[in-house]
Amino acid sequence: MTATPPPATADLAGAPTAALAVRAEGRGRGPSLSPRTAFLLRRLGRLLVSLAVVVVASFFLIHLVPGDPVRAALGIQASPELVAATRAELGLDQPLPVQFFDYIAGLLRGDFGDSIRTGRPVSETIAQRFPATVTLGVVSFLVALLAAVPLGIGAAVALQRPGRRVADAAISGILGMLIAVPGFLLAVGLIALFAVQLQWLPAAGWGDPRDAVLPVLALALGPMAYLARIVQVEMSGVLGATYMTTARAKRLPGRLIYLRHALPNIITASLTVSGLLLSGMVAGTVLIETVFAIPGMGGVMVPAVGAKDYPIVQGLVVVYALIILGVNLIVDLILVTVDPRSSITEG
């Protein structure tokens, strides 16, 4: 990768997107609302629609299974009595509208039903497993963010000077590699190096802070590299902008030039990408938890998917989706606070 601005294909693909996306959601609001309120209302509307899509999809999950879902879950050796009992337990003998109503009512009470395999309430399992997943995700994200922003800004500033093509290629190469290798493969490499060869850190487990080092690295390095790249490209663009010459013409100290004049102009793109990366990292925890045997939600999700334990999968899909939508909402709120224009007034 080179430090050139995003290419023509990217422009073609992307330029209409933001405007279209905003337009698609921005109907029917009176002009009396302030742009920020209107933006927040649009985003809130989208959040609710997304939530509805997730809830409906998770409800229909069991009905989309070809053939008899209960038979598929219990296997061909299960007795007809057990199948009938499980069917009643899942409420599948009720008419569809009643099932849907019960499902929604359950969700509102935080009741996701009971696991088919263990019979334990799904909500109990989630409550047990939630903290490890969220800790892993949040810590990894913070590590990625705190490393990527200074790295990207530093690279952009350092590469400003002419004759740095080799340094540019080296930075691009390293970041590109980290972006290309998925977290779970990185995890394998990290274990082989730091746990097996050097024996510095444990290869599995959860509880001691040392246990968290490799999982966090495996989950954070790829997103960190991608974000650093975005920050670098954005920053290079900003450093070349006329308003930065204006700031330099005012002979402001470097601290004001970079922190006050440059940083706010890269924050929208960086935050938007951060939101996407964090969503990806939430899902990435499933794989990382499996590699490192971390007792998070991924550790129950994977066997439940294999065993067709519908209530567990339904509950976890809803919880993962809630986390992701929550992340998006937080990003939007920060955007409204820090960005006076683009995303807010575009609609």
Partner: peptide
């Protein structure tokens, strides 16, 4: 890179360094 994070909307085109 964009496909990997699912970011259809890429960055704003950066201005050519002046």
């Amino acid at each position: 890179g964009r496909r990997a994070v699912g970011a259809v909307a890429p960055l704003r085109p950066a201005a050519a360094p002046a």
